[in-house]
Computed example of a mutant assay.
Amino acid sequence: MSRPTETRQWVLAKKPAGLPVLTGPDATFRLETVPLPPLKAGQLLCKSRYFSNDAGQRGFIESPVPADRYYINTVPVGAPMYTGVIAEVVESTAESQIKAGQLVMSLHMGIWAEYFVMDEVHAQPVVENEKIAMTHYLGAFGGPGLAAYTGLHYAARIKPDDIVVVSAAAGATGSVAVQIAANLVGCRRVVGIAGGPDKCAWVRSLLARGNDNGAQHACVDYKSPSFAEDLKRATEGGNATVYFDNVGGPVLDTVLGCMALAGRVAVCGAVSSYNNEAGTPMAVRNWFEVINKRLTLQGFILLDFADKIPGAVAELMEAAMGGRLALGDEGSETVVEVGIEGVPGTWLGLYEGVNRGKLVTKLVV
């Protein structure tokens, strides 16, 4: 492959007031063609193969809290949008063993570009396995799956006798979380929350895998008029001991009313409010339940448990190989093949619920 001299990349054109805009004068992103610089020592020139699509990337554009309090630096206007990526190394000046022709991944240090330069310190070699698609390094074995694993084990301190509720259970993190709780830990009851009968049926199929303890798991539809009643019934009369929260908002409000005394809430995300206009409050009517039931709410990010990641990846891969964690066509990801022009639109599909499991962009260059 001859070395490319330029690349097309998406940059942040304007901070959105609410949901990002794809076209027109207020478009959030702009596609630019820029030259590729020569490599410095310890750098890689990479050709993008797959992009990770994550709801939390909305915070990369605009911090949901004051910027000086946010745990990452946001994307400045005029800078390329960054993302998790799997890429092929085209050229290398790395001092490590990363050479041209290898595949590498990065959880957050790729960008929406056909080609890009990355410091070797941010790249991890991808070990190809004929039984496991490499895209799962962005999903079940990447940020979403590891957030599910660490959030349940270390923030929620999950135990086999727990009644566990997981919101956004048909999404990238939630679909792994319900499987960890049901099929790896063997919790006595796991209740997923998803949108619509099809997604709920899929989540129930995940909960059935590897279930050998006779547990009666469930998935309830938050779009149903009877959602509150269904959730109370599924949690044995409102006695959930653990809630893994991905969405916040009305779903969190409802779950708070179904928590048991001394219940634990692991707060992973708040996707229901990511695209709200600035200053819009998240209404929670049942907040007094935190006091009433003496609940513990633990916010966390994956980086809090960086030392746990190798062991978590090994356990998740073993579960996948053993059939207790669904991957591929059975679930866990939705792969969309597009050219560079379609990258922002594919990402925005997250907020329309187009995906079942992890949403991955396969880039055609």
Results as ranks from 00 to 15, higher is better:
Thr7Ile: 07
Gln9Thr: 15
Pro16Ile: 06
Pro20Asp: 05
Asp26Lys: 14
Pro37Lys: 15
Lys40Thr: 13
Lys40Val: 07
Tyr50Cys: 06
Asp54Met: 06
Glu62His: 08
Ser63Met: 07
Pro64Cys: 03
Asn73Val: 11
Pro76Leu: 05
Gly78Asp: 05
Met81Glu: 09
Gln97Glu: 14
Gln102Ala: 14
Ser106Arg: 14
Ile111Arg: 15
Ala113Tyr: 09
Phe116Ala: 12
Glu130Val: 12
Gly145Glu: 03
Pro160Tyr: 00
Asp161Cys: 02
Asp162Met: 00
Asp162Ser: 05
Gln179Leu: 07
Ala182Gly: 06
Gly186Tyr: 06
Val191Lys: 00
Gly192Arg: 01
Pro197Gly: 05
Trp202Ala: 12
Gly210Ser: 01
Asp212Lys: 12
Asn213Phe: 00
Gly214Phe: 05
Val220Asn: 01
Ser224Asn: 11
Pro225Asn: 09
Ala234Thr: 10
Val242Met: 06
Val242Asn: 00
Val242Tyr: 04
Tyr243Pro: 00
Gly257Gln: 09
Ala262Pro: 00
Cys268His: 11
Val271Ser: 14
Gly279Lys: 12
Met282Trp: 00
Asn286Glu: 04
Trp287Leu: 15
Ile291Cys: 07
Lys293Thr: 00
Phe305Gln: 11
Glu318Arg: 15
Ala319Ile: 13
Met321Leu: 14
Glu330Lys: 15
Glu330Gln: 14
Glu352Ile: 04
Val354Asp: 02
Thr361Ile: 15
Lys362Asp: 03
